[in-house]
């Protein structure tokens, strides 16, 4: 029957085709965040002093820790790809597992960071926030929107890598067919890349 051929055909999309699709998708993700970067740029030039004050509220140490955590996780996910190409299945699983742990560390840090701000009533719509100047309200609005959207991408990336890990262990991803793992790693690098932009914009430029 032609259908069975057809399904098999679509399950192993040729690797270059699959990667081209992923790269295009990553472009759209960059444009998605690009919209926020434009708003950031406009608002920063409009309220330079307020942005300066508000940015001092952010904890550079936690931000820097999370940057290191994500950079290391990007490395481990890349290493897992090399491992699968060299037929080291267990090493690949282990490295993805480390990546997932690091993603968890990132999210826990984020949780404490947000929790601390919220305990200080620094969240949109709070009474404290309403007393702040416009620029500071805008900074925190952007802070929550940008890091929130980024955190959502961390979660999606984590789910994707979990699926990759399960497929490696079941043998569906192997030395010949590792397109999904490659795309998962590409996505994870994007998560990392966007953070590399968010960190200086929000934490370092004061």
């Amino acid at each position: 029957m032609t259908t069975s051929e057809h399904i098999e055909h679509s399950e192993h999309i040729d690797s270059d085709t699959g990667k081209l699709g992923m790269w295009l998708f990553l472009f759209t993700e960059l444009f998605l965040f690009g919209g926020l970067f434009i708003v950031y740029a406009v608002m920063r030039s409009k309220y330079a002093a307020d942005f300066h004050h508000a940015a001092l509220e952010l904890n550079v140490l936690i931000g820097a820790t999370n940057t290191v955590v994500l950079l290391v996780s990007s490395m481990t996910v890349a290493m897992s790809l090399t491992a699968i190409q060299q037929k080291q299945k267990n090493l690949a699983i282990g490295l993805i597992f480390i990546t997932l742990i690091l993603a968890g560390v990132f999210m826990v840090n984020k949780y404490f960071e947000w929790g601390h701000k919220i305990s200080l009533h620094l969240y949109p719509g709070s009474e404290v926030m309403k007393t702040l100047p416009h620029g500071e309200i805008m900074f925190f609005g952007l802070y929550y929107m940008m890091t929130g959207l980024h955190a959502l991408h961390v979660i999606i990336g984590g789910i994707l890598l979990t699926i990759v890990m399960m497929r490696i262990s079941s043998g569906k991803i192997n030395q010949e067919h590792y397109l999904l793992q490659e795309n998962g790693a590409l996505y994870w690098h994007l998560v990392d890349l966007i953070w590399i932009f968010l960190f200086p914009l929000l934490y370092l430029i004061t």
Binding site: L32, L36, V39, V42, P133, G135, M138, G141
Partner: peptide, 29 residues
């Protein structure tokens, strides 16, 4: 399309979370 996607999300955030990206009374544009 991603640009309008994030823009619509910002209006949603504006309505649900009171983040004033575009609302002049909150300093938006």
């Amino acid at each position: 399309t991603p640009i309008v996607g994030i823009t619509l999300l910002m209006v949603i955030a504006e309505r649900t979370l009171q983040i004033g990206f575009f609302d002049p009374t909150l300093g938006g544009d």
